[in-house]
């Protein structure tokens, strides 16, 4: 391939910055949004976890199961936020697991990035999940819907 001219490279630069900006807005809009987990037979069974695996009992209303990692900046803020939410809502338990040391669970629950928060019903079935740092009102609304 012949060497590009600076003008060609400038066009490439503009294209990269434009697509990165587009992706950035898409990413920002999607990040932390809580999605209800659809129960389609097998999916509901797979998205199930035992108290032993989690290291604690399920909350009587819900469990906020957060997967974190040391290389994730927003994980800490999410941990603080969900801890406060759990404190404000009786029957809601907040659990933080280090994703790296629970790889089997991570694979089974199809966790790809951190933070990922699963909302579990009292039986430990996944009813919702948020990929990225969720906002307080989003979590509160999801918990309200569970009652």
């Amino acid at each position: 391939m012949r060497n590009n001219t600076p003008v060609d490279n400038l066009l490439v630069l503009i294209a990269i910055l434009a697509s990165a900006t587009g992706y950035g807005f898409y990413f920002r809009a999607r990040s932390g949004r809580l999605k209800a987990t659809t129960k389609k037979g097998a999916t509901a069974v797979i998205s199930c976890i035992t108290p032993v695996e989690m290291g604690t009992e399920f909350g009587s209303v819900a469990t906020l199961l957060q997967f974190s990692s040391a290389f994730c900046a927003p994980c800490r803020a999410t941990k603080v936020l969900l801890g406060e939410v759990a404190k404000d809502h009786p029957g809601v338990v907040h659990v933080v697991l280090d994703a790296e040391s629970h790889l089997e669970l991570v694979r089974r629950l199809k966790i790809i990035s951190t933070p990922t928060t699963l909302i579990l019903d009292p039986k430990g079935h996944e009813v919702g999940r948020a990929v990225g740092a969720p906002r307080r009102e989003q979590v509160a609304a999801a918990l309200h819907a569970l009652r």
Binding site: A20, G24, F67, S69
Partner: peptide, 22 residues
């Protein structure tokens, strides 16, 4: 690398969140 640095600056994009666990 430019796309990652730009996303990091403009959107506070966290590379470790997306790719470390993967």
């Amino acid at each position: 690398a430019l796309a990652a640095a730009f996303l990091n600056f403009a959107f506070n994009y966290c590379l470790g969140c997306q790719f470390y666990l993967l």
